[in-house]
Design a binder for these strands. Structure first.
Lengths: 341, 341
DNA sequence: CTGTTAGCGCATTCAG
DNA sequence: CTGAATGCGCTAACAG
C-alpha cells in the first residue's frame, strides 16, 4: 500500500535502480527486454518496481526513442456512423498493438487539415491515417517526404510513398445505379456528397452507369447532399421540385438516403412505392430503417484493419508493397427499391 | 525552399539560437511569450525560425513542463451517435484551446477501463473525460488522488474531487413515461440499456412514474437492449412475446428505439398505430426516422462544452465549485406516440 | 532584458 | 552480462 493521496514525486528509474542495487541501464534493459539480464537481478528489479509502484514515463522515453506509440486519425466528421465504425475498427487494432489514437475531425476544411497535420508532426505522433482530406496532394506528400508516415483513405495522393486504401467508390456507385436501371427505372436522381474526392467518384460511377444504359444524364436530377441526414433531406426536396417525375434516387451515402426518405414521405409519396432509393455504406443502422435500406456495402472493418496494419507496418520501417488497396463493394438488397409504377 | 526530401536532422532550439545570435533561453522566451524580449532580437528569432523551418519538439517540452496539452476521452462505444456527437463537441473546444484528444473506447469493460486509465497516466495526458465507466468508484477516485484530473459523465464517483456532469437521467425517463401515461397507455414496456449506471437511472425513472400513476410495474414488460439497434430489436421481439398486450414502450435510447420500431413493424404492427414508442437522446437522426421519433433530448453539445471546460479548468489548477452538474432533459414530441387504440 | 547552468526521465553507446 | 557516461530538446531558475 503506497500511502494513497501522497503528493510524493513519482518514482523514476533511478529509484528502482537504487532499490534493486543495479544501474539504471540494467533496469531499462530488464523492463524493455532488450539485452540480457541475470535472473537474480531481474527478480530484484521486478520487486523494486512493484514496491515503488514505478511506471515508466513515456514522455521521457519518447524523447530518446523518437517514437510515441501513438497514431492519429484525421477524418471529416465523427458524427457520421460510417466513420464511427471505422474508428471502432482502428481502435481495436491499436489497442492490440499497444498504440494509442488521437482523433481529429476536419470537416472538409483544408486549413484545418493542414493545421492538424503540423500539430501532429510537432507532437511526434508516429503516423497518421487520413480519411477524405481535401488538402492538395502535394501538401500531404510533403509530410511524408518529411518522414511522417501517412496512409490515405478515400483520397489518392498519387505518390508512391502514400498508400491508399478504400472501397472502389466508382464501382459501387455503378452497382447501385445499375440495380435501379435493371428494375426498370429511367429517371434516376443522385444526391451527391460534400465536395470531396469520394463524392466525385460516386457521381462519376452513377453517370457512367446511366450512359452505358443509354440514358442521358440530366443535371436536374443531381443535387448536393453533404453526406448528412439534413443534407439528404434538403437535396431531396429540391429534387422533387426540379424533377417531379423521378422514380428512383441513388444517395451518396446512407445518412443522406435516410434524410431523403423522410422528405419523400413528407411529400406524400412512399418508399419504395413511388420512389426507390439506394444508399451507400451499409451502416449497421440501415438494416433497421423503415423501410430497411438497399445499399452498397463498404467493409468498414476490413478497411480499418488493413489501413491500420499498413500504417503500423510503415512505422516499423516496412515499405508498402502495394500502393493501392481497393476493396470491392457489395450491393445489399433490402426493401427500399422496387420496379417503378 | 528547404530542400524537400532531405533527411537532415530537424532543427532544434540551438540552431535557432545560433542563427539568431542569442541564447536558447531567449528563443524559448520569445516563442512562448514568457518574459520580455527586446524587439530586434525577437525579429531575428522569428527570421531564424522561418529560415530553418523550426518547429518546437513538444515531447521535449512536455518532459520539462509536465504537461502534454492532451486530454483523453473514454467512452463505451463511439459507434453510438450520441457519443459521436459528444466527441464532436469536445473536439471543437479542444481545438479552440490548442489541446489534442485521445479517444479510447471501453465497451463497458472495467478491465479495459482501468488499463486505459493507467496507460493514459503513464503517457502523462493532462486529464480525462470518462463517460459511463463501470469501474468501481474507488478505482477511479484513486487516479484523481494521484493527481490525474478526471471529469465523469453519466456516472457518479461520489468524491468531492471528481465532478459529474450529465443530464438528469431519472427525470428524463420519468418524462418519457409520464408522456405515455398521459396519452392513456397503461401497458408500457421498457427496453433497458447495457448494465451501467445510466441504465439503472432510466429504469428507476420509468418505474417511479408508473408507480406514481398507480400502475404496478410488471417484469414481463422490461427487457434488456444494450443501447444498440440490434439490442433494441431483440428486446422488442422478446417483449412482444412476453407481453403481447403492450401498447407503448419507452426505450433507454434512440438507437434501441429504432431497432424496436423495426421489430414492431416486422411483427405486423404499426407505430404509433398499434404501439407508441419514445426514445432517449434525441439524436440528429431521430428527426428523420419513419416515423420521426418522440424522444427525450439530452443537450449533447452543452454537456460536451461544460465537461470539457471543467476539465480544462481543473488542469489549469482551478477547483470545481459545483461538483454535480445536472442538465435538464426535454421531451421532444414527434410522431411515434399517440393515444392507444 | 539576457545568458549560463541545470535538469526533466529515460535509452543507449562504450568499456569492462 | 553490467555500469558509467552521454544526450534526446526544451524550460526554468538564477545571476548578471
Amino acid at each position: 500500500m503506497s500511502t494513497p493521496g501522497s503528493r510524493r514525486r513519482r518514482p523514476t528509474i533511478y529509484d528502482v535502480a537504487r532499490l534493486a542495487g543495479v544501474s539504471t541501464a540494467t533496469v531499462s534493459r530488464a523492463l524493455n527486454d532488450t539485452g540480457q539480464v541475470a535472473e537474480p537481478k531481474r527478480v530484484a528489479i521486478d520487486a523494486a518496481v512493484e514496491q515503488l509502484g514505478y511506471r515508466p514515463n513515456t514522455i521521457a522515453r519518447s524523447l530518446v526513442t523518437r517514437a510515441t506509440q501513438t497514431i492519429a486519425l484525421l477524418l471529416p466528421d465523427i458524427t457520421n456512423p460510417f466513420y464511427a465504425e471505422l474508428v471502432a475498427g482502428i481502435q481495436a487494432l491499436t489497442l492490440e498493438r499497444d498504440y494509442t489514437m488521437l482523433l481529429c475531425t476536419t470537416g472538409f476544411d483544408p486549413e484545418l487539415e493542414e493545421r492538424y497535420l503540423r500539430l501532429l508532426r510537432a507532437k511526434h505522433v508516429d503516423g497518421a491515417l487520413v480519411d477524405g482530406l481535401v488538402l492538395p496532394p502535394e501538401r500531404i506528400a510533403r509530410f511524408v517526404e518529411d518522414g511522417f508516415p501517412i496512409v490515405c483513405l478515400d483520397r489518392d495522393v498519387s505518390s508512391p510513398a502514400v498508400p491508399l486504401v478504400q472501397v472502389d467508390n466508382r464501382l459501387g456507385a455503378g452497382m447501385a445505379t445499375e440495380h435501379l436501371l435493371s428494375l426498370g427505372h429511367r429517371r434516376i436522381a443522385h444526391i451527391a456528397g460534400a465536395p470531396a474526392r469520394i463524392s466525385e467518384e460516386r457521381l462519376l460511377g452513377y453517370q457512367a452507369a446511366l450512359e452505358s444504359a443509354g440514358v442521358t444524364p440530366d443535371s436536374a436530377l443531381v443535387a448536393l447532399g453533404a453526406f448528412t441526414e439534413t443534407g439528404g433531406h434538403d437535396a431531396m426536396c429540391a429534387l422533387l421540385e426540379s424533377a417531379p417525375d423521378l422514380t428512383a434516387v441513388f444517395a451518396a451515402n446512407d445518412l443522406s438516403a435516410i434524410g431523403a426518405i423522410n422528405a419523400i414521405v413528407a411529400s406524400g409519396r412512399s418508399v419504395p412505392g413511388d420512389v426507390s432509393i439506394v444508399g451507400f455504406d451499409d451502416l449497421r443502422l440501415s438494416r433497421f430503417t423503415s423501410p430497411p435500406l438497399t445499399t452498397v456495402r463498404q467493409p468498414a472493418d476490413e478497411i480499418a484493419r488493413h489501413s491500420t496494419e499498413l500504417l503500423l507496418g510503415m512505422i516499423a520501417g516496412r515499405k508498402p508493397r502495394k500502393i493501392h488497396h481497393l476493396f470491392v463493394p457489395e450491393l445489399i438488397l433490402r426493401d427500399s427499391t422496387r420496379t417503378p409504377r
